[in-house]
């Protein structure tokens, strides 16, 4: 219990400091806050283009698609806000070119994975989260629907699972840096993989379908939660999703500790 309290206080303090920095450099915040929703606009244009040629996309109406994309955007931005900075820092830290050393992190009496991959917040993503939530509202309001409490619960539960998936994906890509030395392609890959989550899961068949719907279920970011919200998918699937996500999380954690062992902080 004491340990949990310690960790909680540490994260709270970190957040306080990040907010303090925000007020110290507001221009950086506003710049990021205004340019990042651009990509949401780009995707909205694509949705409009697609629906200019059809009114039904795999069972999704235009407003369903807005809800899908809004959910996706909100989760993606949440992951970025909480985990992106630290996960990105890992690149330099693993290579040993950072001033802030991975070695030092291993020394602290706190779980190394927790410490190395979280604790610094990218607050400008807040605008993106708001944009995503706004799109979901827009989609909900423009079409009459019946939604019960259980569906809403399932929706948020799937969002929680999706957050873990997005985190684990970047986490594994960064852990691979212990084994291969490669440039920012890890991050680009992370963003692209998420890209599969922008569309309904039925879009993907065969091998690709298994990959993005089950193995690395990025479709949990948008398609699956919306389908739960609209009651279009059986609750039994939740069990499968939970098992897959838990497996991914523990595998990635094992991989992290295994790589740390092999870790060479060799520098002449």
């Amino acid at each position: 219990m004491g340990r949990l309290r310690r960790i909680f206080r540490y994260y709270l303090l970190s957040l306080k400091f990040d907010v303090k920095t925000l007020f110290a450099y507001p221009e950086a915040f506003w710049m990021a806050a205004f340019t990042q929703p651009l990509w949401a606009i780009v995707q909205m244009i694509f949705i409009e283009t697609l629906y200019g040629q059809t009114s039904n996309f795999l069972g999704y109406s235009k407003y369903d698609s807005y809800m899908l994309y809004g959910t996706y955007k909100a989760i993606q931005s949440l992951a970025v806000m909480i985990f992106y900075l630290r996960l990105q820092d890992l690149t330099e830290e693993i290579r040993g070119t950072s001033q802030w050393s991975l070695d030092m992190m291993l020394l602290k009496p706190i779980d190394s994975q927790l410490f190395a991959t979280s604790g610094k917040y990218w607050l400008p993503e807040l605008t993106n989260i708001l944009v995503g939530a706004g799109m979901v509202m827009y989609g909900l309001v423009n079409e009459p629907r019946m939604i019960n409490g259980l569906q809403i619960l399932a929706y948020f539960y799937v969002l929680f699972l999706a957050l873990i998936v997005v985190y684990v994906l970047y986490f594994v890509l960064q852990t691979l840096l212990f084994w291969f030395d490669y440039l920012q392609v890890g991050e680009a890959f992370w963003i692209r993989m998420q890209g599969f989550g922008k569309y309904p899961r039925e879009l993907y068949h065969g091998g690709l379908g298994v990959l993005v719907n089950i193995a690395i279920p990025v479709t949990l970011m948008g398609s699956v939660p919306v389908e739960y919200l609209l009651g279009r998918i059986p609750y039994t699937m939740l069990a499968m999703y939970t098992v897959v996500v838990a497996a991914l999380f523990f595998l990635s954690r094992w991989f992290w500790f295994f790589s740390l062992k092999r870790y060479s902080s060799f520098s002449s």
Partner: peptide, 10 residues
């Protein structure tokens, strides 16, 4: 324990 490294920061 504690470790201070001249060229890396904590």
């Amino acid at each position: 324990i504690s470790l201070v490294m001249g060229q890396k920061n904590q």
